[in-house]
């Protein structure tokens, strides 16, 4: 029945709705550029969501761990074979996104007899200077976007857009501490916006359907702060720094323990874990 164009469009729309629902369960992921490098931040309940892909490239994902793992392996293969046969500087987040992630994810999304990837992907590549930083986000339908200073994965495009506008209101963070504070704040806002979506009735009578509203109103600061503190108490904050100031072998660094403690804004307490 999918041979009819209308049916196909309908099936894709259903799929979109199904995937949107899936992502309301996930945890947002934020990547921000600062003078020291690129900071990636998310929260997990067991399975890590941030990984090293190549010398200067980190991967972050939101969605199903099995799908993320599958894409992670294909990216690792692609990056290392390319880095070996050509040169490490030929491995870029741009090429990995455009050749490795986007076409695969798009194809799976549109082949309606196959399962789609329930995953949103972020690839961050740290440059020698902040202007050379690249952050690519790929949506579950294969649509990718490029930015040099921020990357946001949240449950909906509209939320990502609202947070992006929020980020742009201030100038680039001048230190790692500030970057962490602002990334945490974005995470808190995104987390509060994960589940609830205003929807609008479009059309009238029989042909009407519910469509997600593009208008996103950001929750207030105090709610975001509480959400972050709640997360710090119950879940695991996962932080990675792609450090541009050290040698290529140490670029990817997990921020944890004391180092993270010191960097965290004073307003929050990180409970000590056994």
């Amino acid at each position: 029945m999918y041979e009819e164009p209308y049916r196909w469009v309908e099936a894709v729309a259903n799929r979109r709705q199904y995937l949107d629902d899936q992502f309301t369960q996930g945890n947002p992921l934020i990547a921000v550029s600062c003078p020291q490098g690129i900071l990636l931040l998310t929260v997990h309940r067991g399975t890590p969501k941030l990984y090293e892909i190549y010398d200067r490239i980190a991967l972050g994902g939101m969605g199903h761990p099995a799908d993320l793992e599958k894409l992670r392996f294909s990216l690792l293969d692609l990056a290392h074979v390319e880095g070996f046969q050509r040169s490490p500087s030929d491995v870029t987040a741009s090429r990995l996104t455009k050749n490795g992630v986007a076409p695969v994810v798009k194809q799976a999304f549109e082949e309606i007899f196959r399962a789609p990837y329930i995953v949103k992907i972020l690839l961050a590549e740290v440059g020698k200077v902040p202007e050379k930083d690249r952050i690519f986000t790929t949506n579950y339908d294969g649509l990718f976007e490029e930015c040099s200073d921020v990357g946001i994965l949240a449950s909906r495009k509209s939320v990502e857009k609202a947070l992006y506008d929020e980020w742009k209101k201030e100038k680039a963070p001048e230190s790692l501490e500030v970057a962490l504070e602002r990334a945490l704040r974005l995470w808190g806002l995104a987390s509060l916006l994960q589940g609830s979506f205003p929807s609008e009735e479009v059309g009238d009578g029989e042909g009407s359907q519910k469509v997600e509203s593009d208008r996103v109103s950001l929750p207030d600061e105090e709610a975001a702060r509480q959400r972050i503190q709640e997360m710090l108490n119950k879940e695991t904050l996962e932080c990675v720094l792609l450090d541009r100031t050290v040698s290529i072998m140490e670029t990817y660094r997990v921020l944890a323990g004391d180092e993270l403690h010191v960097l965290l804004p004073a307003a929050f307490n990180l409970p000590l874990r056994p």
Binding site: Y51, E52, I53, D55, L76, H80, F84
Partner: peptide, 16 residues
């Protein structure tokens, strides 16, 4: 040396 370098980092990144 190149094969070894890439082998070690590929192992580290894929096997965590």
């Amino acid at each position: 040396a190149r094969v070894l370098g890439h082998s070690f980092k590929y192992y580290r990144r894929s096997q965590l």
